[in-house]
Computed example of a mutant assay.
Amino acid sequence: MKNLVQLNMSCSRISRFGEEFKSMENLKFLNLSGCKFLAQSPNLSGSPNLEFLNLSYCKSLKKVHRSVGSLKKLVDLNLERCSNLVRLPGEVNWRSLRSINLDYCTRLESFPEIEGEMKYMTSMSLSNTAIKALPSSIGYLINLELLVLSGCRNLREFILRHL
């Protein structure tokens, strides 16, 4: 598993992970979309080169492991329609992230604090989430081109500050 670069387990019946990702340092692509029994994303601290993470349509997913917030080479994060998702990592340092999709994460009430400039992020979609406010650190998204907040009925505060 040490040399594995791509892992596609979409629509599998996996419900949890143990220590599988501790030594997957070459992993760049992980597709767990449609894993309807998965309640928490795996600990990816042993996969520092991960670029693409797809957890979309994981209906039981409630929590994204804090290690995901430290993936500095992550380019694309898809959590679309994870309808039970309530928690992302508290702080994120996604230096390479270009796009994040949280559409229809209907129980997600907050977006994490952003640590440091995210100069590659161009697209962030949060439509139909339960987000109440965006953190002021959203100003670190200096090249954001597309921000989708449609259907965010709980959004009460939207303050953009240039940092």
Rank of each mutant, 00 (worst) to 15 (best):
L77H: 00
I131G: 05
K22H: 14
A39C: 10
L44K: 00
L144Y: 04
L55P: 00
G151I: 03
C152D: 03
R13E: 12
L30C: 06
L134Q: 01
L77Y: 01
E51A: 13
L30G: 03
L61T: 03
V92D: 00
S125W: 08
D103E: 15
C11Q: 15
V148W: 01
L53K: 00
L79C: 05
R98P: 02
P42Q: 06
L50Y: 01
V64M: 05
N49W: 07
A130I: 05
L7I: 05
E109M: 13
W94A: 01
L79E: 00
E109L: 10
L71W: 02
L55K: 03
F21M: 04
A130C: 13
K132N: 08
V5D: 07
R153K: 12
L146K: 14
N26L: 09
E113Y: 11
M24W: 06
S136W: 07
E91S: 12
S96T: 10
V92S: 01
P135H: 11
M124W: 03
L30E: 06
Y140W: 14
V92Q: 00
S47W: 01
I159Q: 11
Q40W: 00
C58G: 06
I131A: 03
N49D: 09
L38I: 09
N128I: 05
L32M: 10
T106Y: 07
F111N: 01
F37I: 08
I142E: 07
L144Q: 07
S70T: 12
R87I: 03
I114H: 02
L144E: 04
E25R: 14
S137T: 15
G34E: 10
S15H: 07
G90P: 01
R107I: 00
S33H: 06
F29K: 05
N84C: 12
M121T: 13
R13G: 04
C152R: 02
N3C: 13
L38N: 04
T129G: 02
R87C: 09
N143D: 03
P135S: 11
L134T: 04
Y104K: 12
S99M: 14
L38D: 04
K2M: 14
K62W: 01
L141K: 03
I131C: 07
V86H: 04
L163D: 12
L126P: 02
M9C: 09
D76M: 08
C11E: 14
S125C: 11
W94K: 02
I159E: 09
L53N: 01
L144T: 08
A130W: 03
Y140F: 14
T129L: 09
G46C: 06
K63P: 04
R87T: 14
K132L: 13
S70G: 14
V68H: 04
L134P: 10
Y120D: 13
R153T: 13
K119S: 12
L97T: 04
S41A: 08
G139T: 08
K62A: 11
S96G: 07
F158S: 05
L141N: 02
K62S: 11
E20Q: 11
Q40M: 10
I131Q: 03
S56E: 02
L134Y: 05
C152E: 09
S96E: 11
G151Q: 05
R16T: 15
T122Q: 12
Y120V: 01
P42M: 09
F158Q: 01
S110L: 10
Q6H: 11
